[in-house]
């Protein structure tokens, strides 16, 4: 097996419920985290709803998997890009999102924010820098 480390980006473009794409994307991220690649996630379009705080699915009889996003930091998945325009188009701000953090081993486990809000143009550049782009 090659020791090569690649830049993996997962594009999350869909609402968390209504289709299974978001949940099964998260399953790929969790499995993929074991492969020691450089992983980042991007939330855009309706995908920004995936990390909105206070999700309650009791009325639709579906599993609320949103707590799983909070565990991503423990899997060394701590680069979460959120597209600013997608938030604005949906009347959301970063305050509507879950506070997702990770602990930096190199700085005495200091707690740091995982979410970075970027513009559409910046996200395009981020995508360009990747070796592998998964689109869900």
């Amino acid at each position: 097996m090659a020791e090569e480390i690649k830049n993996f980006l997962y594009l999350n473009r869909r609402a968390p419920y209504g289709t299974i794409y978001a949940w099964e994307s998260l399953e790929v991220v969790l499995i993929g985290a074991a492969f020691d690649q450089k992983v980042s996630l991007a939330f855009l379009d309706d995908g920004v709803f995936q990390i909105v705080k206070g999700q309650d699915t009791t009325g639709v009889d579906m599993k609320n998997f949103s707590p799983t996003y909070a565990a991503l930091g423990d899997y060394d998945v701590n680069q979460l890009y959120v597209e600013r325009e997608s938030l604005e188009e949906r009347g959301l701000t970063v305050d509507d999102l879950m506070h997702l953090t990770w602990e930096d081993e190199d700085e005495d486990w200091a707690e740091k924010d995982s979410i970075r809000v970027v513009s559409r143009a910046e996200l395009a550049k981020i995508i360009e820098q990747q070796d592998v782009v998964f689109s869900f």
Partner: peptide, 11 residues
């Protein structure tokens, strides 16, 4: 398993 997808992307 899903590891086969990740491996394919790496390779």
């Amino acid at each position: 398993g899903l590891g086969q997808l990740i491996e394919a992307a790496v390779q």
